[in-house]
Design a protein around this nucleic acid. Structure first.
Lengths: 338, 338
DNA sequence: TTGAAAGCGGTACCAT
DNA sequence: ATGGTACCGCTTTCAA
């Protein structure tokens, strides 16, 4: 039972056919629930397959059918809360739908180009999910001509399906919340302005911030804006800059929860308290926001992965053409930091 | 140039052969740097392949050669700091070595069994890395008979290669540190005692804790031990239990940084301060331990993934037989929480 | 040094 | 309802 075939636990479709006394064609049909198989035959085949612990070889299947039932996800980095949430959401859906999942870290524009070219040329996946990796025109061209199913998360790309949050709205909601709390000197910790991967999220959130200030008759003081890396350390350093000002902000909008964590640390290190001396809020719904008492805007990250995967599967399985752009709701969660 | 073959950007080995005016066999040899190819021939082939943007189809290659150049990593959950660090480390090595990486979340014993059976039967990967997923005997049997390359991380399995930390030592070092700080009532926040996945880490760390107490002539007071889920909430709840005691511990050893974060939150919520009222430390080297001022034992998680992947590749490429068990050093990092 | 051809393990078309 | 068989794109003998 451990190794019925003597070949490392692997049985082929021929073994099953022999065991069931039918042809390989019939086995193939029976196991895939195709029509025109007598139910008694199907039963014999199923039992034979079971007792031999048979699984169709994905590579053989891919070669013969043209479909790999594999999807690949590309993210800028893997060891980040945000991306691992996306992965987890997508993996749950894909495995349930019988798809395998490959992952690639794509930290630079060069790596991104290589990734796309390789995905197109080697065709090892039926579909791609690109997370926070705005594509260059040439890459879009290649993908458009590839008949790969492509979904993007975190950036809009008219050529492909996208799962998005409304970052403008996030910026506005955050700013509005701080305004409502009575703050009028509201600072912002933004992301790197010239990120080599052309990450668009910070720009949009910052724009929402500006819009909301304007609509309240305030002006976005450039001196209250400090850009740092989209990380804990980036937030900490940027916050330190703001706290050094003669007239520092009374509230700060950090563009991610991790930046907010850094900002809270910087504040504490300066001997100031949150929210009394300075209110801080972030964006994400990071799992540690609750215990740190951080006000945040939950953008349901795992859900973004779930939806992208679900829609991609629908696309690949040819069920229904998914919506071109799907927006995930985000909602304010008020905690002690504001 | 975008689509030279008119088939979705895909060129086959035959296209390359035609373009270079040689046979497919020669193309195959030339592109893989096999011997007995005239250098002039190799050059023509290489250029043809380049201009056609040719990549060998991994599935065809797999079918013909028996090697997939794919490795699969199984983790209990994907959206966790620890596992995403491991993934990131492994992915960096694997992609550099020309291996693709598949991932699976394996949250239950049933899922684990299915994962193993499928990996063995479908043979879509040459190698497996099992992270914190102690294997049942039957699963070990199946894998042993499969000639898959298997590495384990986080648990010992004599049949396979393992990357490990010395959890006993970690327990001792942590306890010693708290003892050195003058604490005599040292509590411990352990993991679920009857975890269905038979996660062994908590047991070992707790044993080290007991050993060290004993060696200092203290007795491990069962009342100072509280077990919770291996998570932030688990740590928080367990800590709440300990803080309710008439005579609570003056120091607490949390078996992971996330549990420690929960414990710090619980402490703060009770109006107590760290480390004055109660010292807290964790294990992991979590990226937020620094800003929260948490004393921890860094177990170089990313490095565990790097080493496992590197050794697995060596095993699969038949270079050198890797060491059976590889231990990753861990080191104490003292911060404000103790 | 190179080429021809037999697989690898399935799928899918065409017969029966 | 079932079987025969030509692929899918590559690797790997075996001959030349």
């Amino acid at each position: 039972m451990t190794d019925p075939t003597g070949r490392g636990g692997r049985a082929t479709i021929e073994d099953v056919a022999a065991a069931a006394g039918v042809s390989v064609a019939t086995v193939s049909r029976a196991l895939r629930d195709l029509p025109n198989v007598a139910s008694s035959t199907k039963q014999r085949v199923t039992e034979a397959a079971l007792s031999l612990n048979y699984r169709a070889d994905p590579s053989a299947r891919h070669l013969a059918s043209g479909r790999s039932r594999n999807v690949e996800i590309a993210v800028p980095v893997l060891n980040s809360w945000y991306f691992s949430e996306v992965l987890a959401g997508a993996e749950a859906v894909l495995s349930e739908c019988g798809y395998s999942l490959s992952i690639s870290a794509v930290p630079t524009p060069t790596a991104r180009f290589d990734f796309v070219r390789n995905a197109v040329a080697s065709r090892h996946a039926d579909g791609l999910i690109m997370v926070d990796l705005p594509l260059a025109d040439l890459e879009i061209d290649m993908l458009e001509n590839s008949n790969l199913g492509v979904f993007t998360i975190g950036f809009k790309c008219p050529s492909f399906h996208s799962v998005l949050v409304d970052n403008l709205a996030i910026g506005r909601i955050a700013t509005e919340h701080l305004f409502d709390r009575g703050h009028r000197r509201i600072g912002i910790l933004t992301g790197q302005p010239n990120d080599s991967l052309r990450f668009t999220v910070p720009k949009d959130r910052a724009e929402g911030y500006r819009q909301m200030l304007t609509s309240h008759g305030l002006v976005a003081d450039p001196g209250l804006s400090c850009s740092g890396h989209f990380s804990v350390d980036g937030g900490r350093e940027a916050m330190n800059q703001l706290l050094k000002l003669d007239d520092p902000p009374t509230a700060v909008f950090a563009l991610s929860d991790e930046m907010a964590f850094g900002a809270m640390a910087a504040t504490r290190d300066c001997g100031l308290t949150t929210p009394d001396d300075v209110a801080i809020m972030g964006v994400d719904g990071h799992y540690l926001a609750e215990i740190t008492g951080l006000t945040t805007i939950d953008q349901h990250v795992g859900q973004q992965g779930v939806v992208a995967a679900r829609q991609l599967v629908a696309l690949l399985d040819g069920a229904v053409e998914p919506a071109r752009q799907i927006e995930i709701e985000s909602n304010l969660i008020v905690r002690g930091s504001t």
